[in-house]
Amino acid sequence: MPNKETPQNTREVLQSRAKALAKPVHRQETAEAEETIETLTFLMADEDFGVELRFVRAILPLKQLTPIPGVPAHISGVINVRGEILSVMDLRLLFELKSGAAAASPYVMLLSSPDMVFGIQAQKITGIQHIPINTLQPGLPTITGVREKYLKGLTDSGMALLDGEKLLTDEDLLVYQTTD
C-alpha cells in the first residue's frame, strides 16, 4: 500500500469518488437531446454484445440449470424462475464463438415478448448504455449467416447489438418437436 489510511486521505478519496460519480450523470443529461437506444451490454466469450433493454425482463445469476435431452446443442437446459420453467440458450454455439471453462457464463438474461420468454447465458453484465441511433452501423459484409440474421448493428466502440425482436420471434430457434 503506497498510502497510509488517514482521515485526510479518506476525505480526499471520498471527494474524488464524488466527482467521478457526478460526471457521467451530467454527460448523460447532455446526450439526452439525441435519440438513443437503451441497451444492456454484456460480455460473451470475451466479446462485447448488447441487446435492447426493452426486450430484457430481468437478469439473474445462473443457478440450477437442468439439461434437457434430445434438444439442439445451443439449448443449455431449463431453469425455474419463481415457479416458471424457462429454456436457456447459449448463443456462443450459435455464433460459433469459443466455449470452455475460460469463458464461463454465470449470468442469464431473460428476454421476453408477449409470446415468448427465454434466457440467454452471459459471461458478464457490463452495464446499460444509451446508444445514439446514428452511431449504429450495419453489419460488416464479412458477417454472414446466423450472425447477420440476429445482428442489429455495431457501435463505434465495436459492440455487437443483437436484434432482440428477431431472437424472440425466430422460428428456427424454437424447439417444438415430439419424439417418436
Binding site: 457521467p24 450523470v25 448523460q28 437503451e38 444492456l40 433493454l53 426493452r54 430484457v56 425482463r57 430481468a58 437478469i59 439473474l60 445469476p61 449470468y107 453484465i125 452495464g127 446499460i128
Partner: peptide
C-alpha cells in the same frame, strides 16, 4: 450481485418509462 441488481433496477426503470427516469439515475 449489486451490479446485477442495479442493472435489473435500470431495466425496471426503463420499463416504467418517464416515471422511472429518476429511478434509473439511482440505479445507475
Amino acid at each position: 450481485q449489486s451490479n446485477i441488481l442495479s442493472v435489473n433496477a435500470s431495466i425496471e426503470a426503463a420499463k416504467a418509462g418517464e416515471q422511472g427516469k429518476g429511478f434509473a439515475v439511482v440505479a445507475q
